[in-house]
Nucleic acid binder design. Structure first.
Lengths: 160, 160
DNA sequence: GGGAGATGGACAACCTCGTTGTCCATCTCC
DNA sequence: GGAGATGGACAACGAGGTTGTCCATCTCCC
């Protein structure tokens, strides 16, 4: 196109590469997770598990954290419950609340994905050099919000 | 968590930052596009416009490029036609084909978004240093597929 | 030249995942 | 103790994807 900067790299390449790199990592993690006994997990589920946290949460809070309605959060919990990754328990101090917690299977998938993420990062360090990977992390921290998990990603993409 | 590498950065931070950085850029581009008279454009539309290309395309080819069915591509074209960004013409050499082309409004939005992308990149260069931005682009090229626009992104996210 | 098969497009039915609106049980607080 | 807030469930709907079917038209080969 005609609006290229002096160094010849069009402005849209960097964001596209950022997205492609994200996809490359996430695809690899989920391929490996599928091989390790978790074929039904989808990219979105990682965010959901993180939002549930070690102590559990409620559908309303889950919705708030993910930036979706409580009803949509409830449906997500339904499907993860069907897959055996979360379970609903009662709150002894509030009969309205139902606490959503990771099951053993859910915690297992989380442990495994952590290891796979580390492995991908280690491979990038071999390919690019450890200093370059750390530099990339440093630079990205300076241009992104500090809250890693504030990810209201669900319907963000799409032709609305 | 417990599986952190020696340098203290968990493996999932980098992919998350990649995605957040992508979002930061895309959100800024679309905020500015909205301000410049294109409030209805969504992130996905950039990919669609790029897939349409300067010479136009057909619904079938559009679907192939975007990695969706020809029917879904047809619906996307319908909505962009309603918004005035594309138009359908006949192919004089093949009465079956309907050529989808960008309208003047579509081309305008593409020109404007190019400029905004350049501006964001220039600002990153001020913040991080031009060499760091170029280094990031180089590194990302080495870990991502070479085809920038092979983006079968549509339903990729989601809890499917 | 003509017919078989491939191709482009449209229409319909369906699925998933998000939305809003409503309703009810339960908790909080005055 | 009652008013209002809160958590959860149910229903209807919309966007955007899917597959299946059908038809007009083009291509290719005999």
């Amino acid at each position: 196109m005609s609006n290229e900067p002096p160094d010849g790299t069009p402005g849209f390449e960097l964001p596209l590469r950022l997205f492609l790199a994200f996809r490359v990592v996430i695809d690899e993690v989920h391929e490996e997770l599928a091989r390790q006994g978790h074929p039904d997990l989808r990219p979105m589920h990682g965010f959901v598990f993180q939002a549930i946290g070690p102590h559990g949460t409620t559908a309303v809070d889950l919705g708030r954290t993910l930036g979706i309605s409580k009803q949509a959060a409830g449906k997500t919990v339904d499907s993860l419950e069907r897959l055996g990754y979360v379970e609903r328990g009662r709150d002894p101090r509030d009969a309205r609340r139902k606490i959503v917690r990771l099951t053993g299977r859910g915690a297992d998938s989380l442990r495994r994905s952590e290891l796979i993420f580390e492995r991908v990062r280690a491979r990038w360090m071999e390919t690019l050099g450890a200093d370059r990977v750390r530099a990339m992390e440093d630079d990205l921290r300076r241009v992104t919000p500090s809250d890693l998990w504030r990810l209201d990603a669900p319907g963000w993409f799409g032709t609305g």
